[in-house]
Each structure stands twice: as C-alpha cells, then as structure tokens.
Simulated assay, not measured.
Amino acid sequence: MNENPFEILKQEFPEIAASLGELVEAQKSFKGIDNKTKQLLNLAIQTANRNPTGVQLHASMAKMEGASREEVLGAVVLNLHHSGLASVMECLPKAIKGFESHTEEP
C-alpha cells in the first residue's frame, strides 16, 4: 500500500485532492515570501502540529529551495518554547531524514 498520505487521498477522494492541490498552488504563488522561507515556515508549522511526515517532506523541499541543514533543524527546534519538547523530539529525526534524503544541491 502507498504510504504517501496525499497519494492515498488522491486515490480515495480525487475531487478533494484536486481542490487541495489548487489551494496549495495558490499558496505557492504568493509573492510576499520567498520559497525557501515558505518551506521553513511549513517546517515550523508541521512541528507545532506534531506531524513528523509533514516535517520530513518539507525538510526535503526546504533543501531543494536552498535551505541549509542548520536552517531546517532550526525551524524545528524553534518550536521548543512554543509547542514543547515532545513536538521537537518527535519531529527532529524526521527533519534530519528529510534533509538527508534530498541529495541534490539546490
């Protein structure tokens, strides 16, 4: 079975996935924040939401946008005083895994 949650959503609920995809594309086109910063913000949000899968995905995407390892891990650890130790400890390994899974230089 496919372990990518968005792929499962696309298979089970194609119309909803398509609408969500349109929303994501609209957010990507927002010009007020550069793409690297958007991905670092997404990392912080996913950490606060205790979503390790999202952290891993956005860590890889942040690296593709030019983020350094220090920036990626910093976006996770920044949550320590906001969302607590459990969120950071749950997500930090996935941030490392996501960053290291993307081997190409931006």
Score class of each variant (00 low, 15 high):
M1L: 08
M1N: 07
N4T: 01
P5V: 05
F6K: 09
F6A: 09
I8W: 01
K10S: 15
Q11S: 15
E12K: 14
E12L: 11
F13K: 15
F13V: 08
P14C: 09
P14R: 10
E15A: 14
E15N: 15
I16D: 11
I16G: 08
A17I: 01
A18H: 14
A18R: 14
L23Q: 11
L23V: 12
V24P: 14
V24L: 15
A26G: 14
Q27G: 06
S29I: 00
F30W: 09
K31L: 08
K31H: 06
G32V: 04
G32N: 15
D34G: 08
K36R: 11
T37R: 02
K38G: 11
L41G: 09
I45R: 10
I45F: 00
Q46G: 00
Q46A: 06
Q46N: 07
T47K: 02
A48I: 00
N49F: 00
R50H: 09
T53S: 09
T53F: 06
G54I: 03
G54C: 01
G54V: 02
V55K: 05
Q56Y: 10
H58L: 02
A59L: 05
A59P: 08
M61T: 12
M61C: 08
A62V: 01
A62S: 03
K63D: 03
K63H: 07
M64F: 07
E65W: 06
G66T: 04
S68K: 04
V72F: 06
G74V: 03
V76P: 13
V76M: 10
L80W: 06
L80M: 13
H81W: 08
H81I: 11
S83N: 08
G84Y: 10
G84L: 11
L85M: 13
S87A: 13
S87M: 04
S87W: 00
V88S: 10
M89P: 12
M89G: 11
M89I: 12
E90T: 10
C91D: 10
C91G: 05
C91F: 01
C91W: 03
L92V: 02
L92G: 02
K94C: 07
A95I: 02
A95P: 08
G98Y: 02
F99N: 09
E104N: 12
E104P: 01
E105D: 13
P106N: 00
